[in-house]
Amino acid sequence: MVKPGDGYKDIPKGGLILEAGNAKNYKTGGWRTKKPILDKETCINCHRCWAFCPDSSVLSEDGDVKAEIDYDHCKGCGICAHECPVNAIEMEKE
């Protein structure tokens, strides 16, 4: 991974990025002013929140959305809460 401060001799030619998907290492969670809290009891696992999240931050494991929310990347847009058909997600102030 190219590190801040690397010189021209150390980095790949032509601006190529050689590690696909390395943006995972960049945290956008700090952008949030509100935090989605998932109530696993109320959740009906419909996956609408998963589908609509622009930041791939509603995690689903083996078809189960009740896994977790990825707070490292969630920007707190609130789409998940707004679209939840059973109000299982609440937006809490950070």
Binding site: K24, Y26, T28, P54, D55, D70, D72, H73, K75
Partner: peptide, 17 residues
């Protein structure tokens, strides 16, 4: 992946995913 820098609530992220 997450960690892209589209605005909060941007529809492009949803569409592309």
């Amino acid at each position: 992946t997450g960690g892209h820098r589209l605005c909060s609530g941007c529809g492009a992220g949803t569409v592309v995913r």
